[in-house]
Amino acid sequence: MSSTYGKIFKISTFGESHGRAIGVVVDGCPSGVDFDEILIQNELDRRKPGQSRITTQRKEADSFEVLSGVFEGKTTGTPIALVIFNEDQKSKDYAHIADKFRPSHADYTYSTKYGVRDYRGGGRSSARETAARVAAGALAKMVLNHYGVEIYSYVSQVGAMKLAKSYQDLDLSKIDDNAVRCPDSEMAEKMFNYIDQVRKDGDSIGGVITGVLKNVPAGWGEPVFDKLHAELGKALLSINAVKGFEYGSGFDGVELLGSQHNDAFFTDENGKVKTKTNHSGGIQGGISNGEDIYFRVAFKPVATIMIDQDSVNEAGDAVTVSGKGRHDPCVLPRAVPIVDAMSALVLVDAMLRARVNKL
């Protein structure tokens, strides 16, 4: 099982949804970085369950412990181990699907691959694992702060309900002002009410998160196979429930002519090379060009719903799977900090690789 991500700034996550704990080991973090425990806890608090009635009501403080790699408030350059102990597991909620395959879950594929599966909340396939990524991503943000890099993600679409405004027309400081994490208050209220109705119906809904990476210097990213957008795509597609990724003009760009889509260069008053437009999404040839990097990530509806569904059990017999337990009717609000974290991990690795490439 691949539980490690990164070339230089490497993270390895461990643990299961209903195990004793989850955690992460970070190897390759530079020494001398001011270790900000408050930043890590704040990011974990943004992801943790039980934030509002439109999220799962599982109660986890998601407080973490530092086991290694930090001394007197600074990173030492050695592996940093962070652990989060699980507190509110209700494994009995999953006893009824111990031998059943839940539709659109990883139950069948894990069972086929490994011959055994942890049915308690999905075990390793559970989104609970992403708390470890968020902790590691916060550490990556600490490094990126030295370069002034800013990372924003927000909910821009729920079902067919789409925010028409571009990120340039939004106040991104307002992302956390509401439970949906949409920086447009009017649209956020509509999205909240829609998600709440879906919850009452026992169903689920998906949507889109938009990401914006600002102040990324030109020159980050590796050509050919490790292009910066390819790394972003891999990292973001590794998040539970993600079904699609596009950056820059994305699929809409196919409707433009080359003369319309090309980003013309110019030199600004400070002698810096800029582009008049940014259809490239801040990346050209797989390498950052200094403009804003922006992308969209599509999330499917949460697979667990409170409506009976047809399925089969491990013996291949037809069964009915009944929804039970505590689940998000829409994963988007809690997925925002996960998108932030994976973006930060991609960028910090790209930054360190760019340093290696220059003597």
Rank of each mutant, 00 (worst) to 15 (best):
R353A: 09
T13Q: 10
R353H: 00
R133C: 01
T320M: 09
Y167K: 00
K10P: 02
V155Y: 05
V208F: 05
R117Y: 07
T130M: 07
E246R: 05
F265T: 13
I97D: 11
M351R: 03
T112Y: 08
K276D: 06
T304P: 07
V297P: 03
G73F: 10
E65A: 13
F71R: 13
Y152L: 03
S91Y: 05
D263Y: 08
F245T: 10
R133Q: 06
V70I: 14
G253F: 03
L345I: 13
K59A: 14
Y194A: 13
A132I: 11
R199T: 01
H146R: 15
H146I: 04
G323L: 09
G73D: 12
R296V: 07
L44Y: 06
S2K: 13
G219P: 08
Y119F: 15
F266N: 05
A160V: 02
Q41A: 03
G285P: 05
R133Y: 02
A132L: 08
I239G: 06
E291T: 08
Y147R: 11
I175M: 07
T267G: 00
I205W: 09
K165R: 01
A164V: 10
Y5G: 01
T210W: 07
G286M: 10
G73N: 11
L39P: 11
K141A: 04
S111C: 02
F35H: 07
V302F: 09
Y247N: 11
V216L: 07
R355W: 04
A136M: 04
T267K: 05
K59D: 15
A318L: 14
Y152E: 09
V297Y: 03
D27E: 15
D268A: 11
D263A: 08
S63V: 02
D308S: 14
E37Y: 02
T109I: 13
S3C: 02
R296N: 14
I287G: 12
I38N: 09
H105D: 11
W220R: 02
S31V: 04
S185R: 03
W220N: 04
D328W: 01
S322K: 15
L359R: 10
E72N: 14
I209C: 03
K214Y: 00
L347V: 14
G282A: 07
F9C: 09
K59T: 10
R334V: 07
S166V: 00
K190Y: 02
A218F: 02
E255G: 00
V143P: 05
N42T: 08
E314C: 06
E231Y: 00
S288Y: 09
A136G: 03
D176V: 00
A179C: 06
L39Q: 15
G244H: 06
G28R: 09
Y194F: 15
N278L: 01
S259K: 09
C182V: 10
E186A: 11
D93R: 01
D34A: 15
G148A: 12
V198Y: 07
